[in-house]
Simulated assay, not measured.
Amino acid sequence: PYGLLKIFPPQGVMTHFPSAEVDRKFTLKQIEVFKRLIRPLRVKYIHLQNSAGLSYKVPFANLVRVGLSLYGEYGSKDLKGVLKLKFPSRIGARILEVRRLPKGSCISYGCRYRLKKPSYVGVVSFGYADGFMRCLSNRAVVYYRGKPYPVAGNITMDLTAVVFGNVKPRVGEYMEIVNSRRKFSDLATLCGTIPYEIMTRIGERVERRLLK
């Protein structure tokens, strides 16, 4: 195979870490095997590391391919001691309606949540069709004016109910579904999945804005 490479010389060579965040022994062996395989080659670019792979030393490589870290997420817990990342994303949704309901009131489909005391309950314009997965029902919190409030009952296709207690929020104001205090990885942990699944589920009707 190396003879063919002399006819069509490559500019670069790469491999990909499948288990950098969970199997250090396997990944270290992969680095050594790859280093041995590319020894006969003379290429300009060599790259192995994804986001989780940044916690490994690969002195013979000169490029990296980060994905998750671009969004301020750590692909591996080992990275927290190596990099200081800033979480750049925020997802907001408007409060559509607010009512004060009595103790024992049933919230959302299936009546999986009942108020333990009289409380203000808000309806937010964000549901599982927007990427707020149903596994976050009765588990996630969302933020209003910097403070967390619990999601109440089942998240529906287009709407989510939030309990505010004695705080009366203003209709039309925004709540934060995702921010630097509640990241994609935090939601993924609640759902027993990975941040990529949460991120790629954000629906098309969620407006994207790039802020400088």
Score class of each variant (00 low, 15 high):
residue 125 S to C: 09
residue 127 G to V: 09
residue 119 S to N: 03
residue 22 V to Y: 10
residue 31 I to L: 12
residue 26 F to Y: 10
residue 172 G to T: 09
residue 19 S to H: 15
residue 123 V to Y: 05
residue 93 A to P: 13
residue 1 P to G: 08
residue 72 G to I: 13
residue 202 I to C: 06
residue 17 F to M: 10
residue 94 R to A: 06
residue 8 F to Y: 12
residue 195 P to L: 01
residue 211 L to A: 03
residue 65 R to N: 11
residue 35 K to P: 05
residue 187 L to V: 03
residue 109 Y to K: 11
residue 113 Y to F: 15
residue 15 T to A: 09
residue 91 I to N: 09
residue 164 F to M: 00
residue 114 R to I: 02
residue 194 I to S: 10
residue 81 G to K: 15
residue 177 I to M: 02
residue 140 A to G: 11
residue 59 P to K: 13
residue 157 M to S: 14
residue 48 L to E: 05
residue 210 L to A: 02
residue 26 F to P: 01
residue 163 V to W: 00
residue 43 V to M: 12
residue 199 M to C: 02
residue 22 V to E: 15
residue 95 I to R: 04
residue 99 R to N: 01
residue 182 R to D: 03
residue 186 D to N: 13
residue 137 S to F: 06
residue 68 L to R: 13
residue 42 R to T: 13
residue 14 M to I: 01
residue 149 Y to G: 01
residue 63 L to Q: 15
residue 76 S to H: 05
residue 72 G to V: 13
residue 211 L to S: 06
residue 81 G to M: 10
residue 26 F to S: 08
residue 90 R to E: 12
residue 8 F to H: 12
residue 81 G to C: 12
residue 180 S to Y: 13
residue 125 S to F: 12
residue 145 R to Q: 11
residue 140 A to T: 09
residue 90 R to L: 12
residue 25 K to S: 14
residue 50 N to Y: 00
residue 161 A to D: 02
residue 39 R to I: 02
residue 207 E to L: 15
residue 74 Y to C: 00
residue 101 L to S: 03
residue 34 F to I: 08
residue 52 A to W: 03
residue 170 R to H: 01
residue 182 R to E: 06
residue 54 L to F: 08
residue 134 R to N: 10
residue 103 K to I: 02
residue 64 V to A: 15
residue 51 S to W: 02
residue 72 G to H: 07
residue 51 S to Y: 04
residue 191 C to P: 06
residue 155 I to P: 00
residue 198 I to Y: 02
residue 106 C to G: 04
residue 182 R to G: 00
